[in-house]
Amino acid sequence: MVQAPEGVEGAGFFATSLEKVVGMARKNSIWPLPFATSCCGIEFMATMGAHYDLARFGSERLSFSPRQADLLMVMGTIAKKMGPVLRQVYEQMAEPRWVLSVGACASSGGIFDTYSVLQGIDRIIPVDVYVPGCPPRPEQIIDGVMKIQRLVETESLRRRDSAEYKAMLNQYGIE
C-alpha cells in the first residue's frame, strides 16, 4: 500500500497538488527496459526472480519495446559496436524517460579499458543513477531502482519542457 502524498484532508475530500499525485503514480509503475548485455544481466535476472522480486517496487512489467518503457536499465559492457544501438534505443523512448546505469562497465568501462569498449555510457546518453559493482548484487540494483523512484516522485512536471533539459540533451547531440 502506497502512502498518500502530503495534502489537506477533510471529511470526504483530499486536496494535494497534481504533481505529487502524478509523481506517486509514476513512481510505482515504472516499466523498465532491460538492456542487458552481459554479467549484470544475469544479476538482473536474479533481481527479477522470486528471491529478490522487483515486483515489490511496481517494476515487474518489463517492456521490451523502448517506446513503452520509462526506465532504461543498461546492464553490462557496452562495446563501441553497440554504442549506436544503445543511443537509438534511448532516442526511441518517449518522455519522460530515465536511465539507470548498472555495473562498472556501463558506468565507466570498468576493468575493460580497451580499444573496443565504450568508456561509460554517459559518453553517448544522459544517465540518472549509477549503480557501482562488478556485477552489483541484486540489493544494489534494487537500491538503484529506489533512487530512480525518488527522482521520479519528486520530478517537476515541467522539467522535460525546460530549456536546461533541452540544453542537456543537446550536449549529447540528441534532437
Partner: peptide
C-alpha cells in the same frame, strides 16, 4: 567479426595500443 567494420588497426598486433585513447581521468 568482432570489431567494427571500419576499424583500421589489427588490434592484437603488438604495436597497437590496448587502451582506449579517449579517457582523460588516467
Amino acid at each position: 567479426i568482432l570489431n567494427v567494420e571500419d576499424m583500421i588497426m589489427f588490434p592484437l598486433r603488438k604495436e597497437f595500443p590496448l587502451e582506449d585513447q579517449v579517457r582523460e581521468d588516467k
